[in-house]
Design a binder for these strands. Sequence first.
RNA 1: UGGGAGGUCGUCUAACGGUAAGACCGCAGACUCUGGAUCUGCUUAUCGGGGUUCGAGUCCCUGCCUCCCAGCCA
Length: 573
Amino acid sequence: MSSPLLPDAPAEKSAPTHFVREMILEDLKTNRFGGRVHTRFPPEPNGYLHIGHAKSICLNFGLAAEFGGKCNLRFDDTNPCKEELEYVESIIRDVRWLGFDWEDRLFYASDYFDQLYEWAVQLIQAGKAFVCDLSAEEVRAYRGTLTEPGRNSPYRDRAIEENLDLFGRMKAGEFPDGARTLRAKVDMASPNLNLRDPVMYRILHAEHHRTGDKWCIYPMYDFAHGQSDSIEGITHSICTLEFEDHRPLYDWYLNALGVHHPQQIEFDRLNLTYTVLSKRRLLTLVQTGYVSGWDDPRMPTISGIRRRGYTPRGIRNFCARVGVSKTNGTIELSLLEHAIREDLNRTAPRVMAVLRPLRVVIENYPEGQVEEMEAVNNPEDPAAGTRLVPFSRVIYIERDDFREDPPKQYYRLAPGREVRLRYAYFIRCVSVVKDEATGEVLELRCTYDPATRGGNSPPDGRKVKSTIHWVSAAHAADAEVRLYDTLFTREDPGAEEGREFTSDLNPNSLEVLQGCKLEPALAGAAAGSRYQFERLGYFCADPDSTPGKPVFNRTVALRDTWAKIEKSLKESR
RNA sequence: UGGGAGGUCGUCUAACGGUAAGACCGCAGACUCUGGAUCUGCUUAUCGGGGUUCGAGUCCCUGCCUCCCAGCCA
């Protein structure tokens, strides 16, 4: 039994069932694998995990948990040229962070190199594999095309003894890279190109991150994956749609070897609007410096969205909601944002922060006086309690919460108008101080009503249409706040004919705000701590924060009804 | 023009021959010391054409469209 979810793991939202679960249920019913369910998540350590991998992780670990089975973490490290220890470490960190546990079952395909080699020898002895001297270009030429069959390699009928000798010498390092390959004898006329005598081993004089220089021949994915599954006793080998064509080969190797034979099942990989999710493209973004690294908060990588402030539970719930099928579709980014808001709404402490400060002097408030106002920490969670927030004569409010000439349906502050300061007082704007030269609003002069202390309605029953947030100027903590927009301007980056995906990059995906004003308690916010800045959105303290200077990332904005109204107002004009 | 897999609201997913459902998005309203959250209502879909059937999204035939495959990548 495994406990795939860490102790803090919550119950997931119940999601509709799907075909993979149905297949497992059927196998359980027929006792196909002795009632066992054993899956695995098999990343290649050649890049960082992203939100698409999260779907696969949740599926594999989730199914195992559901049926009281196990799920392994296995690195598919058969290509030393692309793989690195840094990636292995990041993947381990990310899967764990998502809330899953593989106990003692951390494996590597490279653990099986000796066994794989023996199996290759076995296939040679059975007359089912041969050493081929064709070059890469020649192999391609012999392979045929989509519509024409291929031709047999001239080396296909080599004697078994010669094959054995040559393969041994390949392993011994007698030949340079690319000089020969070991190929399976399947069928050069198969309409499935994967079956046209696929390469099993290639010569690569490259250092492997785990086996060092022990090997100079490495198995191909197809010759390693199924057997690795078999060795681990996997029952259901879940992979993405593009491997559908490989299943016949997966089955062929396992049958030829006569070993435990898992069921490969293919499902649709995740696609997200305004996002790229291919390792090649993500690598490009990192290497060309379009982003600051794999963990740039604009990246769809697990490490990126973690830094951005996304929660494991929010991501898991998202994965449950997107479903599993064989339809190649694209999920709207809004669904991800919804899942994150849903979780953060329940868990994030509320706090007041002013991003674009406008100074307000409350003329009738006693100079030098400070009051501690009681504020609710989380209206969704009474147990979160309350806190005290200092209030004084000079405060900051959001520039956007004041309009000199308010449009219709705008009911925040304006000359002569009254609003509520959350948890504090009603204030009325009595005058506006402007820069004579530029016309810029420098400061507001207001009056407050002492009868509204705590933000309560006054005895006369007077109402205000709006409540705004504020921070006491003398007590505020200064902060840097980073606002993010989508990394791309198009839903489907790079989809347009002849256009590089990088030309769809959003030049405004990052906006850095300095001089933001926070409630004093946030001065020393720990990196990774999440808050809701009231009326603005969810924010997460960045590791760049220093003791005197917190840095916050906006995880996701709150739903903004006024912004919508304003937008439609502008459009209808 | 070979093979494989798909096609249900704008998006994703359900309906297992018997009233096409849910979520997200959008729109409208209620409520509110967050224009947040919550609640209510509304709009919108079975790729086309034939057939079988009392009854078809589902079964059959036939078109059309989309995705994947010609790495010694995974």
